[in-house]
Amino acid sequence: MSLINPLNSAQNVGGASQTPNQSVAPAQQTASAAQAATQNTEQTSTTGNPFIDAIRLPDESSIPEPNNQELTQEDFFSLLSQQLSMQDPFKPVDNDQMIAQMASFSTVDGINNLNDEIVNLNTVMTSSQALQASGLVGQKVLIPSDTGHVSAEGRELKGIISTPEAIESITVRVEDEKGQLIKSFTVDGSAGGNVDVAWDGLDKNGEPVADGNYSIKASGKVDGKSEDLAVSTYAHVTSVSLGTASTGAILNLRGVGGIKIGDVLAVAES
């Protein structure tokens, strides 16, 4: 029979009771460190001042650049190589199918090259058109507008009145840029069609008007009813601009502005 020392038993019991405390301490330290890290993060993200927190810049977020969805010739041959490497050796790709695929891609590539050549051709044609249009400098062209310019270089304003049928008398009104009546007179429209009209640049009192733009308004009876008639006026070409492939050459008109050469109705002597 062996004796048990009470002191040793007490120490053993105490040691057994202290062991869990020693294992819990690291866990508590880990939790405390995590809580401190969380508090530091919150302190870093917020300052406690609502105004400053509202105007702070947000964290930068990486936005991936958009991928180019256009397939190139290198992409086609890469896909073709993958197709050939992964095909069934007992069922290889038919030669006709391969040739058809290559021919289709070559056709698309040729169309793209053709589009580039057409753009270059349009540029050359635009320059050539502007060179030819330069011969109109100093001439008068008929434009689809009832507004013309009067200045010391040209006091007379001419135009054409388009009538749907023969009209015995056509009333012509000359107005300034503010719409005020400067002079009115009548012209004979019994011939029908396009009727020439001219204004000498004098007001109703016979005095020369100031330089500026003036409009010619025409009206007449059609089927017994008074109707406004279309009027086109002549303008003096001062220069030519190259323009673009879509607009073509631009004719610069004295006091009126620019007009596309395709909108010109007629060319007259200066």
Rank of each mutant, 00 (worst) to 15 (best):
I4M: 09
P6A: 11
N8E: 14
S9V: 07
G14W: 07
S17D: 03
S17L: 14
S17M: 09
P20L: 12
S23P: 04
V24Q: 12
P26C: 03
A27I: 14
A27E: 07
A31R: 15
S32P: 04
A34E: 07
Q35G: 09
A37F: 12
T38A: 14
Q39H: 06
S45A: 11
T46S: 08
T47H: 11
G48Q: 09
P50W: 01
D53E: 04
L57Q: 15
E60Q: 04
E60I: 02
E60P: 00
S62L: 15
P66L: 05
P66W: 02
P66F: 01
Q69T: 11
L71F: 08
T72W: 00
Q73C: 06
Q73R: 09
E74I: 10
D75A: 08
F76H: 14
F76T: 10
L79F: 15
L80T: 12
S81V: 13
L84F: 14
Q87I: 13
D88H: 05
P89F: 07
F90Q: 12
F90I: 11
K91M: 05
K91A: 09
V93C: 01
N95W: 07
I99Y: 02
A100E: 00
M102G: 08
A103D: 12
S106T: 11
T107N: 15
D109P: 07
V119W: 01
N122F: 03
T123V: 06
T123W: 03
T126W: 01
Q129D: 14
A130S: 13
A130N: 04
L136D: 15
L136V: 13
V137S: 07
V137W: 00
G138F: 02
K140E: 14
V141S: 13
L142E: 05
S145M: 09
S145G: 03
D146Q: 12
T147F: 00
G148W: 00
G148F: 00
E153T: 13
L157F: 02
I160W: 10
T163V: 04
P164I: 15
E165A: 10
A166V: 01
E168T: 13
R173P: 01
R173A: 08
V174S: 09
D176E: 05
K178H: 05
K178Y: 03
Q180T: 09
L181F: 05
I182A: 08
F185D: 04
F185W: 03
T186R: 00
D188F: 01
A191V: 10
G192Y: 05
G193R: 11
N194Q: 08
V195D: 00
V197A: 10
A198G: 03
D200V: 05
G206W: 09
A210C: 02
D211H: 10
G212V: 07
G212L: 08
N213S: 10
Y214R: 04
Y214F: 03
A218L: 05
G220E: 06
S226V: 15
S226G: 06
V231L: 03
V231S: 00
V231C: 01
S232Y: 13
T233Y: 02
Y234H: 11
A235K: 07
A235T: 04
T238A: 11
T238K: 13
S241W: 05
S241H: 11
S241I: 07
L242G: 02
G243P: 11
T244P: 09
T244S: 15
A245G: 10
S246D: 15
T247M: 06
G248V: 07
G248Q: 10
L251E: 03
R254T: 06
G255H: 04
V256G: 01
V256D: 07
I259G: 02
K260Q: 13
G262C: 03
D263E: 15
V267F: 05
A268I: 04
